[in-house]
Design a protein around this nucleic acid. Structure first.
Length: 112
DNA sequence: CAGCTGACAATAA
DNA sequence: GTTATTGCCAGCT
């Protein structure tokens, strides 16, 4: 966490979340709680997800790479259908288990 | 000004 | 093993 200031206007909690999400590499996924922990809020998992809800589309933020701690994808009403998110992650190179959940052990991004 | 809601997470039964 | 409940932080009404 040294040069995390791509968006120099990173003052609010939102921006801070956007920066981290924007840093997620392809083929990797981050959890809401994980991002919250990076910010120093171990219990701010909901807040991170809530911040994503207000994510401007102009930032082209890879919100589809943010999943639950259990490896499950976000609810269907986020993209209209969970298939979209799953398809995008598969296209990125993320592997899924038989349950339809992401293999966190392989793709969990801890924030390099 | 006070209470409610919400793209979650962890613990208890 | 699954299902239910509580806690958490920031913005909104």
């Amino acid at each position: 966490m040294e040069g995390w200031y791509v968006l120099e206007n990173a003052e609010g909690f939102f921006k801070r979340v956007y920066e981290i999400v924007a840093r997620i590499p392809e083929g990797k996924v981050a959890t809401y709680g994980g991002i919250a922990r990076m910010l120093g809020y171990p219990g701010g998992a909901r807040t991170v997800g809530w911040a994503m809800r207000g994510t401007p589309e102009g930032l082209n933020l890879p919100c589809h790479r943010v999943v639950k701690a259990t490896g499950e994808l976000a609810p269907s009403y986020v993209f209209g259908n969970s298939e979209i998110q799953r398809a995008m992650l598969e296209a990125e190179g993320v592997t899924f288990r038989e349950d339809g959940t992401i293999d966190m052990e392989r793709h969990l991004w801890q924030g390099i």
